[in-house]
Amino acid sequence: MGRERALETIEVVVDGVCARVEIDLDESPLGWLARRRGRDGKAFIAPAQLLAGERLRVDFTRAQMTPRLTADWNAPARRGRGSSPGLTFSEAALAARERLGRAVEAVGPEFSGLLLDVCCFLKGLEEVERERAWPARTAKVVLALGLDRLARHYGLSDAAQGPSRTLVRGWTAPEETGPA
Rank of each mutant, 00 (worst) to 15 (best):
K42L: 14
F60Y: 15
M65K: 09
A133P: 00
V14C: 01
L33H: 03
R37L: 12
E129F: 11
L150K: 01
E4C: 07
S112M: 05
D26T: 05
A77Y: 08
P67Q: 04
A180P: 10
V12G: 10
D40I: 12
V118W: 06
G155F: 03
D15R: 12
R149V: 00
G101E: 07
A43Y: 05
D72C: 04
N74E: 15
R39P: 05
V118A: 14
A46E: 12
G170C: 08
E105W: 01
R5Y: 05
L94I: 05
E4V: 03
M1G: 15
P85Y: 03
G38M: 10
L50H: 05
R137K: 10
P29G: 10
G101I: 00
H153G: 02
L50C: 07
A103H: 09
G31P: 04
A19Y: 03
R35G: 14
R152Q: 07
L147M: 08
A96L: 09
V118F: 08
R79G: 11
M65W: 11
E11A: 13
S157P: 01
E129L: 13
R55E: 14
W134T: 05
A75W: 11
D40T: 13
R57Q: 11
S28L: 10
A43D: 07
V141I: 14
G124F: 12
L56A: 02
A144P: 04
S112L: 02
G41P: 07
G86D: 08
W134L: 14
A63M: 06
K42W: 01
G178V: 13
W134H: 09
F89P: 00
R169L: 15
T61D: 14
E98C: 10
I23N: 04
S28N: 10
A19M: 10
V13K: 06
A106W: 00
R36F: 05
A77H: 08
L116N: 01
A48S: 15
A6V: 04
E129W: 12
V58I: 03
R62A: 10
G178N: 09
S164R: 07
W134F: 15
R102F: 00
A173T: 02
G108C: 01
L116R: 13
D59E: 06
R37Q: 11
G178L: 14
L145Q: 10
N74G: 09
G2N: 12
L147E: 12
A46S: 15
S28Y: 09
Q161G: 08
A95V: 04
P76W: 07
R99H: 09
R152I: 02
L69F: 15
A34D: 02
